[in-house]
Design a protein around this nucleic acid. Structure first.
Lengths: 194, 194
DNA sequence: GTCTATAGCAGGATAGAC
DNA sequence: GTCTATCCTGCTATAGAC
């Protein structure tokens, strides 16, 4: 009775995620993945079309999880600069905590393929930045902040500022970008509040 | 008389560079590289120890060329904000013009291996940023600016802001980072000058 | 210094039995 | 839906003749 299914797409995704984070993208090949699931490699092709499709799945998952992390950090809804700082630190923390999953999001990918969750993520950040800057649809501000955050993550990962260390560069960039001459609007700062 | 050498390390480097830019890193394997040089793959190992060593060579070359591009752009020696803008635009132009070579610089690489040219590049940018900010050794400022530039390049390449386009995000970030509340010192602005 | 030949490995993917 | 068996392609790298 080998007929009841041993694995599902969700199983595959879970196992793939684990291999990805533990051993990196290169190690995520069909045979070890199948082995982790107690199954032969050829069986995987009943559930996913090919490896690329699997990576697309994971890329979507990455966008979902990052958005989740950002939403979680934005609970303290103080608008303006503090909100952008909280958002930024959550972004950095996520990228540091799940480097492989984060990196997967940025693989060159066919333009429209599953851009769904990636778009939702973008929209979320756009909303936060726009609220902070006071501009109705602050795409430029979002691009600027996002570029800084992503670049910082990448440089740290690649070890480019290895010798000196970041040396406060994160705070410096954040200050410049989220300060009132960057993106931030002057926070309300009601005098009656504690 | 097959004894006179048909190829040199410089030849290999040149051919590799060409393949890299034309077809990407994946396509840069020993067999096609050898073929481009009119030689068998095994012959390459007389000149380079292995593929990794070749990539290190190219990585160094990338740092040299990027530094060259930045130096070239910094000829108009107006200090302060305009200098940082010129530097930044040259950085962006280089990364866009030679995307594969640029990307090669950021591969995770053994810490000290050939960090020579990479270090010289860093020192050069550090010098420019420090001059602009007026701080003696503005590592934080350099990290912040570099992170922004690199992140912008990477996001553009990966197509993450595909739908909206960058929408002026480069200028926005540059303004925030190089403006007087970012890195830039108030430029001398002598009242007597035109 | 270059050649032929080959070892050795790993990967994605398919055919067809059960 | 999973299995066994297998194809095919690609890669780095080495041995040994000339």
């Amino acid at each position: 009775m080998p007929y009841p299914a041993k694995i599902s797409v969700a199983d595959i995704q879970r196992a793939a995620l684990r291999i990805l984070e533990d051993q990196g993208l290169e190690a995520l090949s069909m045979r070890p993945l199948a082995e982790a699931l107690g199954v032969r490699a050829s069986s995987l092709y009943r559930h996913v079309a090919h490896r690329e499709a699997l990576l697309s799945l994971l890329s979507e998952e990455a966008a979902v999880q990052l958005r989740g992390a950002l939403e979680g950090a934005a609970v303290s809804e103080a608008p303006g600069r503090p909100a952008l700082e909280a958002l930024s630190r959550a972004f950095l923390a996520f990228a540091q905590r799940r480097p492989q999953l984060y990196a997967l999001m940025h693989l060159p990918r066919p333009p429209e393929s599953g851009a769904g969750e990636s778009q939702r993520l973008w929209q979320f950040v756009l909303g936060r930045v726009s609220r902070a800057s006071g501009l109705p649809d602050d795409t430029a501000g979002t691009v600027a902040l996002w570029a800084f955050l992503h670049g910082y993550v990448e440089l740290e990962r690649s070890g480019l500022f290895g010798l000196s260390g970041p040396a406060g560069g994160f705070e410096r960039g954040l200050e410049a970008l989220s300060g009132r001459h960057g993106l931030g609007v002057v926070p309300p700062r009601p005098e009656s509040a504690g």
